Amino acid sequence: MTDYEDIRPQAFHARRRAFDIIVDDLMRDCKRKSFTIRHGECGLVCRKSTFDDLPEFKFRTITMFVTRDGRSIAAARFRHWRMTGELFPGAESFIAAAESHSRDDHEMSEFVSAHWPDEVHPLEYGDIVVFDRLSVLTPSPDVWPLLTKGIERQFGKTMSLLVLKAFPFWEPESGGPRTVEFHRRQCGMKRRLRRLLDVTTVQGEDSDWMWRAFNGRVELAFMGGF
């Protein structure tokens, strides 16, 4: 039998190695440093890629790293969508552009287009920001205050809609049926996200998704209520 105190450092070092790989990948995605923020003992570094121009839309990746003592303890990735013209070209065009980029963006575009009509599409009023990933190595009370400040500073002036998929990374069998444990963890995740980001849950087949509008018409238009 191995003592718990002997296992714990090994487990943390393994987590650190896996987390460092995630950080390196996100660094490669976003080579340009945007800004830094300090909060308590921690700081936040925001980095961004250049926009990829797609037909009628453009897209880029934003990453944010929460640091302590010069090392990252949390890393977040956002996908940032913007319309290039003055008028929204239609849901089919948006879905096609998103599908050409990635499966995740395709799913996002279908969710948004299913719940907001073309006449009041969020891209008519600003940018769509997808909170795509959050990895936390070391829990800290500074992580979420820094992330919310970073989101406001990076996207606050142009964002009309923030969307995310509340989907725990752990699932017993990839592609298998969801378990009671999975739903328990997902419900806990949704409660935290509602409290921390003031996002709204969705019912029905899109129940994995959550959203928050930053424009009154976009908020009213959810499910055609405009």
Rank of each mutant, 00 (worst) to 15 (best):
K58V: 09
S140W: 01
T201L: 11
M64A: 07
I7G: 00
A18G: 14
D69R: 12
Q154T: 02
G70E: 06
L44M: 02
L147M: 14
D3P: 03
P141D: 10
F12N: 05
G43W: 02
S34H: 07
L162W: 01
G150V: 00
K48V: 09
D118A: 08
S109I: 08
G150D: 01
G225I: 07
R217N: 11
S72T: 03
I22Q: 12
E56I: 11
R178T: 07
R60F: 06
P145M: 08
E92N: 13
M159Y: 03
L196F: 08
Q203C: 14
K190S: 04
E107S: 04
G40C: 05
W209K: 10
P172C: 01
R79T: 13
T84A: 12
V136N: 09
G176N: 07
D132A: 12
A213T: 01
L220K: 15
F51T: 08
F182K: 00
V23N: 00
D127E: 06
I37R: 00
D25N: 15
P89I: 08
G156Q: 05
S93G: 14
D142N: 12
C187H: 15
T201E: 15
G225K: 06
E181Q: 12
L193N: 01
V136G: 07
A114H: 07
R153Q: 05
D118W: 11
D20P: 06
R153P: 03
S34C: 06
V23Y: 08
N215M: 06
L162R: 02
D3H: 05
F182L: 05
Q186R: 15
L134G: 03
E99M: 12
P122C: 05
L197N: 00
H121S: 07
R194D: 04
G43I: 02
F19T: 03
L193G: 00
A91M: 14
T67F: 05
D3W: 06
G188D: 11
E56G: 10
A221L: 05
D25L: 13
R194F: 12
P141L: 12
V23L: 00
R32Y: 11
R185A: 00
A14P: 01
E171Y: 00
V218Y: 03
E86P: 03
Y4T: 08
